[in-house]
Each structure stands twice: as structure tokens, then as C-alpha cells.
């Protein structure tokens, strides 16, 4: 079953084509890697999938809703976390959790229950009253991810979630992703770490607004005769990208 269906998506900014006839599906419960060079059109596509931006043409269905006509329904069915912004620095751990719970319409008992589960799982019980800005980046990102799936969305979008995180925490983060995927949440993730691309069930590689390849990491490597994702990536995207930066 497909949780995301993208059919001939085109997005233009003036004469600049950011997304050029994208067509792909994401299956329910899969970890879907979305790779591409800077300026390849990833951010534009994610904004459309999250209902933040309307496609110029083409049909995009997310969690059973059309993003052009029902963006609000799409938004309440997804979770989102990015490297640039995730949690409010000057609120405490618990305040941040509560805030997101309220935004996504959870009842106060639900919020209380899930807060405790979450804090126990992350072993952050002692840090519950600490301000976010006093946490290390790794902890912050793990917490941000847990908060992004607090309302049990059917899909969670992660935009470079592990950028700059230390190697051990980065792996712990991916274990959390595995766990979420195992519980049925579809994970849509972008990353600049090529080893992380290997953790995905399927990856798509974008270049110049188009999809260059889409398959499992193993199949892609076989198909293009590359021995690592890094080599594959370089092979597919090694041209000077002269687009607008996203």
C-alpha cells in the first residue's frame, strides 16, 4: 500500500523549474531516503509533500489526501523535523513536548502519558525541567524526533536530522528511526551522510529537479556498478549544479 503517491509533479518558480515531472510512490512503513545535491529540488519537493506549498501541476497524495485541495488534513497526518529548527530553545523539555501535543490536538491525559513514555525511553527523566538550549545537539535531535512522532502520524519527514551529530548518537538516532518504522510509521528522510543512505529501504537520488534513480541501495549499487552509496551518488550527480540554492 502506498502512503505517498506523486504523479508528474512539477513546480516552477518563474522560469526556474525546481521539480521536473517527479513520479514516485512511498510504501507504508518504509524508510525512504531522499538524496540529492544542494539545489537539486529536495526542499521544494518536501515542502509540497508537507502541504506547505502547492504544486504547479501534477497530483500529490499524502496519507490519502490531495495536498493541493486538502493541505490541512495532510498536515495533521504528518510529523516534521529539520536540522535547522526542531525545538524551542528557551522552553524546557516537558514544555516543548506539551506544546507539540497541544498543537496536534492531543488530550491532556494523552500528553501526560506519552510524555512519561517518551522521557523513560530517552532516559531524560532527570532532564525534564532543563531548557532545550542546555542539551547537547545529539540529545536535542533525538528528543525532536520523538516529539515529531508524538501524535503518532502516519508519516514523518526528517530533513537532515543528523547533521553535525556525533557518530554514536547518530547511530542511536537511526535506531529510533528503525523502531518507528517497525511500529508502522513511514519515514521520509534526507541526509548528506552516504552511509545513512544505506539504512534506508529505498532511496531516490535527485539531480537538477529530476529523479535520477530510485531503488533499494543494493540494487542501485548493482545497477550502476558502484561499490558504495558515495560512489553511486557521485556518479549520478557529478555535474556542476548551477541552480538557485534552496
Amino acid at each position: 500500500m502506498n502512503i505517498i503517491e506523486v504523479d508528474n509533479l512539477v513546480k516552477k518558480f518563474g522560469s526556474f523549474i525546481a521539480n521536473d515531472h517527479l513520479t514516485f510512490n512511498v510504501r507504508k512503513g518504509e524508510i525512504f531516503g531522499f538524496l540529492g545535491a544542494n539545489g537539486a529540488g529536495k526542499t521544494t519537493a518536501i515542502k509540497i509533500l508537507c502541504g506547505l506549498s502547492k504544486p504547479t501541476s501534477g497530483k500529490v497524495m499524502v496519507a490519502g489526501y490531495n495536498v493541493s485541495t486538502h493541505p490541512e488534513e495532510v498536515k495533521s497526518n504528518i510529523g516534521y523535523m529539520s536540522q535547522k529548527f526542531s525545538l524551542y530553545d528557551d522552553l524546557t523539555v516537558v514544555e516543548n513536548i506539551r506544546l507539540y501535543g497541544v498543537i496536534y490536538g492531543l488530550s491532556s491525559t494523552e500528553i501526560k502519558e506519552r510524555t512519561e513514555i517518551l522521557l523513560n525511553r530517552l532516559q531524560l527523566q532527570d532532564a525534564r525541567k532543563r531548557l532545550i538550549k542546555t542539551l547537547s545537539l545529539g540529545w536535542k535531535q533525538k528528543l525532536a524526533f520523538s516529539v515529531a512522532i508524538l501524535h503518532r502520524p502516519s508519516i514523518v519527514f526528517l530533513d537532515e536530522p543528523t547533521s553535525g551529530v556525533d557518530p554514536i548518537t547518530r547511530r542511536q538516532f537511526w535506531e529510533m528511526i528503525y523502531e518507528a518504522a517497525n511500529s508502522g510509521i513511514t519515514v521520509f528522510v534526507t541526509t548528506h551522510y552516504m552511509d545513512e543512505a544505506e539504512y534506508c529501504n529505498r532511496v531516490t537520488i535527485m539531480a537538477d529537479g529530476k529523479i535520477e534513480a530510485l531503488d533499494t541501495p543494493a540494487n542501485l549499487k548493482k545497477q550502476y556498478g558502484a561499490n558504495s552509496m558515495n560512489a553511486l551518488f557521485l556518479k549520478l550527480t557529478r555535474k556542476e549544479t548551477v541552480g538557485l540554492d534552496n
Partner: peptide, 10 residues
């Protein structure tokens, strides 16, 4: 090279 794609990094 932080936040820069693998091609540009290389």
C-alpha cells in the same frame, strides 16, 4: 563542508 552535498564535498 557541513551541510554540503557529497559531490561538492569531494
Amino acid at each position: 563542508t557541513t551541510g554540503v552535498d557529497a559531490v561538492s564535498r569531494q
